[in-house]
Design a protein around this nucleic acid. Sequence first.
DNA 1: GTCTATAAGATGATAGAC
DNA 2: GTCTATCATCTTATAGAC
Lengths: 202, 202
Amino acid sequence: MAEIAANTRDRIIEEAEYLIQTRGYDSFSFAHLEERIGIRKASIHHHFPSKTDLGLEIVKRFRANCQGAFDQLDRECSDPIDRLKAYAGLFIQAIENGGRMCLCGILAAGFSTLPTPLLKQLRSAALEHENWLSKTFQEGLETKRIQPRGDADSLAQRFFSSLEGAMLLSRMNGGSKKFKVLVAELLGDLPAAPPRRPKSKA
Amino acid sequence: MAEIAANTRDRIIEEAEYLIQTRGYDSFSFAHLEERIGIRKASIHHHFPSKTDLGLEIVKRFRANCQGAFDQLDRECSDPIDRLKAYAGLFIQAIENGGRMCLCGILAAGFSTLPTPLLKQLRSAALEHENWLSKTFQEGLETKRIQPRGDADSLAQRFFSSLEGAMLLSRMNGGSKKFKVLVAELLGDLPAAPPRRPKSKA
DNA sequence: GTCTATAAGATGATAGAC
DNA sequence: GTCTATCATCTTATAGAC
């Protein structure tokens, strides 16, 4: 995953993504990029004429990366709860990798000042997360692994909201530590039956 | 609650609070205030020397208002679940009153660029919400009104994260409509027993 | 208390040399 | 493809007249 970007264009995307994840879209600037990459602002404009162009590429790449991650989770985790755990693990990784936020959450927080094309990409990104989560909860409901406390869409949206909210709030106190606890409680609350019972029955 | 501000100073606080709730701290400016209030930027600086000073007053007032709201909820709702419902109702009111976000959530989202004094106020504000929620969940647990799915602190943090996350995400699609549904599901999931069962038993 | 005028810096963006 | 130089605009903030 975290290789060093080969060309300038990719380095710009990489550093800009970090800046958006940590500062938000409005509060990141070409000057910050200049400093981090060691390239002049004008050169960045050569690769991305406007800030919106750059933002768009970042969210598009984010969407593609997420789809890749979803496919990998589907392949590697047969149990839906394990899959949700691994999904939440991606949030933890982000927090611990320089205090990054999920692009969905941090961009949604800047909703009212977001350029329209970026907003459309953001909507799609968030929808893809909710859809994948819904599919996963649906499987959990069908296989009786997850308690039926609402339909899959509802469970997905509650799970997503919790993670996004907790992630944003986590930076105020203790970073990933509290977030991890909350995730564990969230996941521990899902199963329809104890995951593994002692071999005696009575 | 929503009276018109008597003096200039209060009007500034009022309008600035709205701007922060909708745009975030970084993205609101004295120029926006000038436009909304019909007063020059220099005059605003007369009341609040720096932007941080203004931000501080807003969060302090917010904390006081919340404490007042908590007291009122404690007085008016005897049932802890009703109290949580009324608490969530405050979020709905904010969304429907010009698409406002909770200051805790929108300021937390701008965490990394927030002036230190404001960050401290924010921490206190968030803590007060979590503490009041924890107290309320504790009562629900003790009176067996709420299912024991974790301790009160944990339930409070999950509830708070869900509301903040859902609120921030709500603006992307449909505003308060989806948020209301999510809140209803969140609350409907709490009770330890069906609130009212048909009088027949078998 | 409110105003005009202005400062000093940041912002996104462009022109044109190399 | 990268640079210097420059732009118009926006930002927070101050000085000083009324």
